[in-house]
């Protein structure tokens, strides 16, 4: 059940990432539990193939900011690793900036960057400035240009005073900012971000959002991001690709995902004082009473009809109509897929 528009690929102008039928299989050895089983495993090890990514098709155009969403183990990170050439696929093709990533051509590697939120790529015991210097050598950045870019990035994130401190003395948020600076020094055309805001506080998350949005627009950079925080998605991405069990479940605009997968609107009514339950319950929508406030979930198709009636109820002081939060939509999306999968398994 792909929700991908078959014409979407053709519609993308100036494609930077083109992926077709990309799959990655891992062979894993079962590690048996229990003594007897371990002894048996001495003579016979059982292994099976696990398909982390199975036949993904994807096209991303220049300047797009795409979010890869999916539950843990869905294959998001594997896909990013394939796109950055860290691992070689079992089948399928991919082109990033016209290169096959896993050929690891220097020309290709000079033009993109990968940042992993859970890994430290800076020199641990040294100030970040030293790592930046090394980056300059590795990416052959012109010295004048290097300094200009570095200063601009450092000022945008307001971390100038941190780059001369050993990295190990910095907080997680500070480190992440410096990681981003390091990754952007060579002005990559494509940026892969693997959970860049993991474990960060709200303020740091916000700063990083602002920064990424700003840099991406200014440079017309193509960004692919994996995350578990819907805040990241809402703040940054226009396009969302949902992956579950190694497969693309949905690929489309963020607005569309909201439009398509929300059957309800959330209507919040404020009363002067706690209303009588029966008064609200008679409309027949799921509702929640919080003192003088009532939260209703109303079918989108009926909202225009119902809303005037609801508002006419005695004592309504204020009203707000909102979309279901993104977290909920995505969680529901994952869940419905799991259910469909379970049903298919049971049926077969």
């Amino acid at each position: 059940m792909h929700n991908t528009d078959p014409n979407a690929a053709a519609a993308v102008a100036d494609p930077v990432i083109e992926v077709e039928g990309l799959a990655k299989e891992y062979r894993v050895f079962d590690k048996p539990e229990g003594l007897a089983a371990s002894v048996r495993a001495l003579f016979h090890r059982t292994s099976r193939a696990v398909e982390a990514v199975k036949g993904v098709d994807l096209v991303v155009g220049r300047g797009e900011f795409v979010a890869l969403l999916g539950p843990n183990g869905a294959g998001k990170t594997t896909l990013l690793k394939l796109l950055s050439g860290i691992i070689t696929p079992t089948r399928g093709t991919a082109r990033v900036l016209g290169h096959v990533p896993w050929e690891r051509a220097d020309d290709f590697r000079r033009r993109f960057a990968l940042v992993m939120g859970q890994r430290n790529q800076l020199w641990w015991d040294l100030p970040a400035a030293e790592s930046f210097r090394l980056h300059q050598e590795i990416y052959r950045i012109d010295p004048a240009r290097f300094e200009k870019t570095r200063d601009a990035l450092v000022d945008m994130l307001d971390v100038r005073r941190l780059i001369l401190q050993p990295v190990r003395e910095l907080s997680l948020g500070e480190r992440m900012k410096l990681e981003l600076v390091a990754a952007l020094l060579h002005e990559p055309e494509v940026l892969f971000l693997d959970e860049p805001t993991i474990g960060l506080d709200v303020v740091a998350q916000h700063t990083i959002h602002e920064f990424l949005r700003d840099v991406q627009r200014r440079r017309r950079m193509t960004v692919v991001l994996t995350t578990h925080y819907m805040k990241d998605v809402a703040a940054l991405c226009e396009r969302v690709v949902v992956i579950t069990r190694g497969d693309v479940l949905y690929d489309g605009s963020l607005a569309e995902i909201v439009d398509r997968f929300t059957t309800h609107k959330i209507v919040t009514l404020d009363f002067d004082e706690a209303p009588e339950r029966a008064l609200i319950e008679r409309f027949g929508f799921p509702c929640e009473f919080r003192g003088p406030q009532v939260v209703l979930r109303i079918d989108r198709s009926r909202i225009a009809d119902v809303l005037p009636e609801v508002l006419a109820a005695a004592g309504v002081r204020d009203v707000s109509v909102e979309d279901v939060p993104l977290e909920e939509i995505v969680a529901e999306l994952f869940r419905s897929d799991t259910r469909a999968h379970a049903a298919a398994e049971a049926g077969s």
């Binding site: 860290i86 590697r109 960057a113 992993m116 590795i138 990416y139």
Partner: peptide, 15 residues
């Protein structure tokens, strides 16, 4: 073990 090699592989330098 920790995946630090990933960072090496994306750099335009002989691994």
């Amino acid at each position: 073990r920790t995946g630090g090699l990933d960072a090496v592989l994306v750099q335009p330098l002989d691994a």
